[in-house]
Design a protein around this nucleic acid. Sequence first.
DNA 1: AATTAATTGTTATAATATAACATTATGTAA
DNA 2: TTACATAATGTTATATTATAACAATTAATT
Lengths: 130, 130
Amino acid sequence: MQKQNFLTKNQQIVLDLVEKSSEPLKAYTILFNVQKKGIKAPLQVYRALDKLVEIGKIHKIESRNAFIACHNSSCQVAKATAFSICEICEKVTEISSAGLSKYLANFKDKDGMKYSKYNLEFFGLCKKCR
Amino acid sequence: MQKQNFLTKNQQIVLDLVEKSSEPLKAYTILFNVQKKGIKAPLQVYRALDKLVEIGKIHKIESRNAFIACHNSSCQVAKATAFSICEICEKVTEISSAGLSKYLANFKDKDGMKYSKYNLEFFGLCKKCR
DNA sequence: AATTAATTGTTATAATATAACATTATGTAA
DNA sequence: TTACATAATGTTATATTATAACAATTAATT
Ligand SMILES: [Zn+2]
Ligand SMILES: [Zn+2]
Ligand SMILES: [Zn+2]
Ligand SMILES: [Zn+2]
């Protein structure tokens, strides 16, 4: 069997919900909202989320245990992500900055080691909350 | 009452353990290891961890739900952290790069917004695992 | 059709984290 | 030094997040 090239039913249901949302969704919030579509158990949600993260359709906001659809067309790598997070209203925005991604992709640590995968979360106050 | 300037007993016990460890520790691993010192409940550990993170003595590795002592003398801000994480052996290293921290501290998003707080986690393979 | 791999469904449970409230310790100020 | 306010603690219970294990089904490959 070759690598799946499309979304399965559960994956599509979860993705539709996450894409419709203006804010990051938590796994159990997703579960609650897709129960009418026949997804009954946490594991069904987590499996769909795992795959969607793997193929870069969504990202996990690690500091919030929540998931957001990718809104960065240049985010092909899917493994190099950057977000800003408002500490008051919890608004999360995916940052797409060619400069930033270039800088981080080329960053070398003390041992000269490069890392193609990274996750960066900026914290501060959004426009509305300042 | 003024802001506490020293560590309380529980905070010191937890910090001692985290500082002795060569790898990030999870909250319940910490709990298990400090029970002989009289800390009996998860909440006691989480409260100590919260304070230690707040004052910058330790950092949370968000993608791993684990805590590591600060090994970055220039990490005064305590809110601007960067780590490399080996995806095989899970070795975590705090990155102290003046260039990186300067770049990120000065980074502006599309709206010209700056963020003084951030957490960056790089993923890859450490020397030993390559 | 037989084989293989991926996905699904299901139940149970593990791992991570916080709520709520009573108590004790400690700093501040009259 | 006594009253007050604040911070930390102890304790029990519970909430939240995530995975183990296994049987059943679906779909591509030969
Ligand atoms: Zn993206
Ligand atoms: Zn905001
Ligand atoms: Zn540090
Ligand atoms: Zn390694």
